[in-house]
Nucleic acid binder design. Structure first.
Lengths: 360, 360
DNA sequence: CTGTTAGCGCCTTCAA
DNA sequence: TTGAAGGCGCTAACAG
C-alpha cells in the first residue's frame, strides 16, 4: 500500500540500512549509492514514516510552542519568530537534515489545557518545548507544571520559557536543568517607568485596568505601577483605583467606565496592555471626554496597531519578535543559554500622543 | 528507564493488551480491572509513547492547521476557533479519548514552507489538516499542492480548506475526495458591496490598495471592486488607481501615498484588508487630509481593532471564528461536509465612520 | 472480558 | 562503505 523504506531499498538495490543512512545523513555513504537511493526516493515518492522513525530513534522532530491566545498578536509575534528559527531556512525541501516541525499550541489561558498539551507533547517525545506568556500563580498548578517539566526534561526535551519568569524556588525538582532557559520581560520596570512618565506630566489621580488576577504578568506590571506611585508619595486608595479583568478590549471598556464612575476626577488611565487600552479609549471617548486633554491613556506591549490609534498610544514596547526568535534558537541549541539560565529582557517607554499633562 | 505499557501491565497484573484497551477505551474492560490499571498508570506516572502507538495503529492524533501569518489576527482567530473544536472540551485530562493534538503551522506565506509542512504532517500520519487563507495562483504550486493533498487523502488524512477556494478543476487527482470540504469566503461579493457603498455615497475617484499578486484572496476582492465600478459605469484607468503590496500596515501607508500622488483628486481609498487600511489612514492623515471629510477609507475583514480606529473603519466583516470552528468540526468528522464539499461563507458590510460622501 | 501472538517501519549495533 | 539482525513500545487480530 504505502511505500516503505524497504521498497526504496529494493528499487535502489541496496539494504534498508543504507537508505536510512542517506536519509539521515549520519553515516558515510558512497556518492553513487546516495545518488541511486535519492533517485529511488523521488521515483517512488517516498515519505518517511515519522512514528516508526521516532520510535526507533527514541526522539522526534516535533517542537511545541505554547501560547495563551493565538488570536492575540502578542503571542502570534513571539510564536512566529520562534517558529522561524526552529523551522530553519525556507529553502529546505523537508527531506532530511535537522528539519523540525515547529508547531504552536493554543492553551486559551487554561491551566488544564496547558498541562494537557504538555502531556501530548511528551507523548510525542517532542524535541523541545517553548512556553510563552505569563504563568498562573496557583500553587497547585505551579507544582503540576514543575513536575511535568521535570519529566519532559528527563526524557530529553529542551524546555524554554519566553516571557515568563523562571519556576519558583520552591520547586526543587525543576531547579536543576529542567528548564534550559527563561527569558523574562521586565514587566515591573516597564510598569514603573510608564507611571513615572504620567507622574512627571503632573498626574496624581491615575486609574489602573489590570489583567486577570493570579498571573505573573498582571502582578508584575501592577507592582511597577504602584512602586512608582509610592516612590512619588502619591497616596490614595489604590485598590479602589484598580480593576481586574481579562486581556480584552471589552474588559478595558468596562473597567474604564467603572473606574471613572468610582472617581470622575481621574486624569489618567493605565491599561494592562494595548488591547485593553483600546477599550479604555473607547470608553473615555464615549463619555464625552477627550484624549489626552481630559484623560490620558496608556497601554503596554506596543503591538503593531498601537501606533495607529488616534491619538497614538503611549505604551511600553516589548521586543516580542526578538524574544521569540531567541527562545527558538535556545530550543534548537543554536545559542547558549544565558548565565544561570535566566535573562531579563528590557522594555522601552514609547511616549506618544495619548498622554499629556492633566487639565489646569 | 522510561515507563512502558508492559510495566503498567505488570504492576496491574494484567496483560499489555488490557492496558492498551483501557487506555484507548475501544474495547470492553471489566470495571475492577480498569480501576486497577488506571491506578497503576497513576502510580507509575505512565505516559503513552505516541510514536509507538501511531506506528502500531497506523494513525496519529496530530491535526495540523496551516496559516499564512500567525502574527495576523485574521489567521489567529480562525486557527484558535479550529483548535478549540479539535482539542475538545478543556476538562479532558488528556488521558485518552479522541484526544487530538491540534497544532498550528506558520507558513509565512511561503509556498515552499506550505509544502514542507504538509510533508512533515504526512510523515507524522496526521489525522487531519486544515489549510486556512487564500491560495497562491501559481500553476506549478497548485499542481504540487494538489498532488500532495491527494497523497495525504490516500493515507487517510482529512483535508479541509478554510477561507480558500476549492482546488481548480484542472487538478483531476484532487477532485474526488482529496479535499473533504472547502469553506470559501465571499471575497468577491464583499468587495463588490463595499465599493457599491462608496459609489452610493457619491464617490467616483476611488483608489485601491490591493494585496500581493497571484493570490486568490487578492484577486477576488479586486474583482468585486471592479465589478461594482463597471456596473456603475465608472470609467477611469483602473490599473493606475490600483497598487499591490503585502497585507501589512506599511504597505497600506506606502501605497496610499503613491495613489494620492498619482491622483490627488481621489476621494476614497479601499484597502485589501483592515491592517492595510490602518496604514492608509495614517498616510491620509499625514498628508493633512481628514477622514472621512476629505478622503474616505475602507478595509476588509473587520478585525477586532477596526471598530476602535478613529473614525471607526467601514469594512467587510468575515465570520472568521465561525468559519474556523466549522472547519475544525469538519476535520473531526463532527459535522457533515456541505453538498459538493463546497460552502461559500457570506460577508457583512459594516458601515462606520471612516466613509462619508465626498466633499462638495 | 482477557491473554497470546505477530508485526507496524525504522534505526542501530555488529560484522564483513 | 555496506549488509544482516534485533528490537523500539504499542495495537490488533485471534483464541479462549
Amino acid at each position: 500500500m504505502t511505500v516503505t523504506l524497504a521498497d526504496v531499498a529494493a528499487r535502489a538495490r541496496v539494504s534498508p540500512a543504507t537508505v536510512s543512512r542517506v536519509l539521515n545523513g549520519n553515516y558515510p555513504v558512497a556518492a553513487t549509492t546516495r545518488e541511486r537511493v535519492l533517485r529511488a526516493v523521488d521515483e517512488l515518492d517516498y515519505v518517511l514514516n515519522g512514528p516508526a522513525s521516532s520510535l526507533a530513534a527514541a526522539t522526534s522532530d516535533l517542537v511545541g510552542i505554547l501560547v495563551n491566545d493565538i488570536a492575540d498578536p502578542f503571542f502570534g509575534i513571539m510564536a512566529g519568530a520562534a517558529q522561524t528559527e526552529i523551522s530553519g531556512p525556507e529553502g529546505s525541501s523537508g527531506r532530511a537534515r535537522g528539519e523540525k516541525l515547529a508547531v504552536v499550541c493554543n492553551t486559551g489561558g487554561s491551566p488544564q489545557r496547558e498541562l494537557t498539551y504538555l502531556t501530548l507533547l511528551q507523548r510525542q517525545r517532542a524535541a523541545a518545548v517553548v512556553i510563552t506568556g505569563g504563568a498562573l500563580e496557583d500553587p497547585a498548578h505551579i507544582a503540576a507544571m514543575s513536575a511535568k517539566l521535570a519529566r519532559l526534561a528527563d526524557a530529553g526535551t529542551k524546555v524554554v520559557l519566553c516571557g515568563r519568569p523562571p519556576l519558583p524556588e520552591g520547586a526543587p525538582e525543576a531547579r536543576n536543568g529542567s528548564v534550559l532557559a527563561a527569558l523574562t520581560f521586565d514587566n515591573r520596570g516597564g510598569g514603573r517607568r510608564l507611571t513615572e512618565h504620567l507622574l512627571t506630566l503632573g498626574h496624581r489621580s491615575i486609574g489602573y485596568v489590570a489583567g486577570p488576577t493570579e498571573r505573573t504578568t498582571t502582578r508584575h506590571r501592577l507592582e511597577g505601577h504602584r512602586a512608582a506611585l509610592a516612590a512619588a508619595g502619591v497616596a490614595g486608595d489604590q485598590d479602589r483605583l484598580t480593576v481586574h479583568g481579562p486581556y480584552t478590549r471589552s474588559s478595558g471598556y468596562d473597567a474604564t467606565r467603572e473606574l471613572l464612575r468610582r472617581d470622575p476626577g481621574l486624569t489618567a488611565i493605565v491599561a494592562a496592555n494595548d488591547t485593553v487600552a483600546l477599550g479604555a479609549c473607547a470608553a473615555v471617548r464615549e463619555l464625552g471626554l477627550r484624549i489626552p486633554e481630559d484623560v490620558s491613556v496608556a497601554g503596554f506591549d506596543d503591538l503593531p496597531f498601537s501606533v495607529d490609534a488616534v491619538p497614538a498610544l503611549t505604551t511600553v514596547r516589548l521586543p516580542l519578535f526578538a524574544a521569540g526568535a531567541r527562545a527558538g534558537r535556545l530550543a534548537m541549541g543554536k545559542e547558549d543559554p544565558p548565565p544561570g539560565g535566566i535573562a531579563t529582557i528590557g522594555s522601552d517607554l514609547m511616549t506618544r500622543g495619548s498622554t499629556a499633562p492633566p487639565r489646569g
